[in-house]
Design a protein around this nucleic acid. Structure first.
Lengths: 215, 215
DNA sequence: ATTACTATGTACCGAGTAA
DNA sequence: TTTACTCGGTACATAGTAA
């Protein structure tokens, strides 16, 4: 409903804060927001009428600050976004499954191993623990606000090994990482967990055991 | 720049989350967003082209989810808002000043006193500690994400006593509250702090002493 | 039911310009 | 220099309608 005023509101918020003010001009604003002086002028007047901003004319420009409706609108937006971005997806739940030993092979490659050690801070056990999720959406949400650790790919005479994105996690008390090859099938709902110990025996895990992974 | 798509993006975020999807229809959306079926249809197509959303036609409607650009745009917005709304204004700093005894008079009124006790959980000392701030902006920022405790006004035969907004705070180790009469002068940069003890003597405060108030 | 095209109407933008 | 008006062209929203 006030979408067209949103860029200006954000600008004022950015420069003035919630309760401060900013000295600017319609010309300046038009340049910063890719618009024209006339359009900005008109919108500012409209926004003032709607009590979104306060406007104070000066000799060589104007002073802007947020007004109650503007603050309320921004806060409303903030809350809506917050609800979704701050979801505390501390846990990722799935069941233990057996892999086909593929992970073990990759773990054994020195060029990967070295990077794991350097970038994750641990030397992974030569195998992965496979965890089957209900669907991939869980994973995307889980890693959404985690920082990825990128393991670079490399080439040999025989073939190319792609990059791997890792996300540091914990399995119970043991540190580890989810490893996602860049060229993975995106429908896949099985994740591979690497860790310095052989998790399967360390925690006596069997297939179909429910397991939770922490951030 | 994408302001006109913002309401739809928020809708999808709200209903589907960042990675989920929502079954809806252009008719439904038009009603919820105060628009028309045709406009929604067109915008959804545009948004799909811009990779803001994913669109999947069904027999009796369509399935929507956020796409990469949509998520990125929302997150960008979120971060901009977060910066300003999550400012940790834990401290409010000012200097001790002498009041004209006005606060003391109001504190002594039983109708106010009773409410202070009930709503704030302490019986205020019969006087206020006045703290002078640099400017009122500080105060507005400080109380922005605090909940106000409203002390109701009342009438006597002689005059009317207005409502008072209170914000629970702490002065060093002592609990207290900032009391702001509703009909206060908004340029005023002096706040009145009430507390169960006589703060001035408890902490041996003198005029011009710098004091910090905590949330 | 739906979605989405085409045609029409309107509101918005921006150039020109006054103050 | 500013801001903000008037006015004309266009881009956008809506109605009608096809699929």
């Amino acid at each position: 409903m006030w979408g067209k005023y949103y860029p200006i509101l954000l600008y004022v918020l950015e420069k003035a804060g919630l309760f401060g003010n900013v000295k600017t001009s319609t010309v300046l604003l038009s340049k910063e927001l890719n618009s024209t002086q006339q359009t900005i002028s008109r919108k500012l007047i409209e926004m003032e009428k709607k009590k979104m901003i306060k406007r104070q004319l000066e000799a060589n420009g104007l002073i802007l600050s947020l007004d109650e409706k503007g603050r309320a609108y921004l806060k409303e937006n903030y809350n809506a976004l917050k609800k979704n971005f701050e979801k505390k997806n501390i846990l990722l739940k799935g069941s233990v499954v057996s892999g086909i030993g593929e992970g073990k092979y990759y773990m054994s490659l020195p060029k990967y191993q070295k990077q794991f050690q350097q970038k994750l801070g641990f030397k992974p056990y030569s195998g992965t623990l496979n965890i089957k999720l209900k669907d991939r959406t869980q994973l995307l949400e889980f890693i959404n606000n985690l920082n990825s650790v990128l393991i670079n790919g490399f080439k040999t005479k025989k073939r190319t090994y792609g990059p791997i994105a890792c996300y540091k996690i914990k399995v119970k008390d043991i540190e580890g990482a989810i490893a996602i090859p860049e060229r993975t099938r995106h429908e896949e709902n099985i994740i591979e967990v690497i860790s310095p110990v052989y998790l399967r025996s360390y925690y006596n895990l069997k297939d179909n055991d429910i397991l939770e992974v922490e951030k």
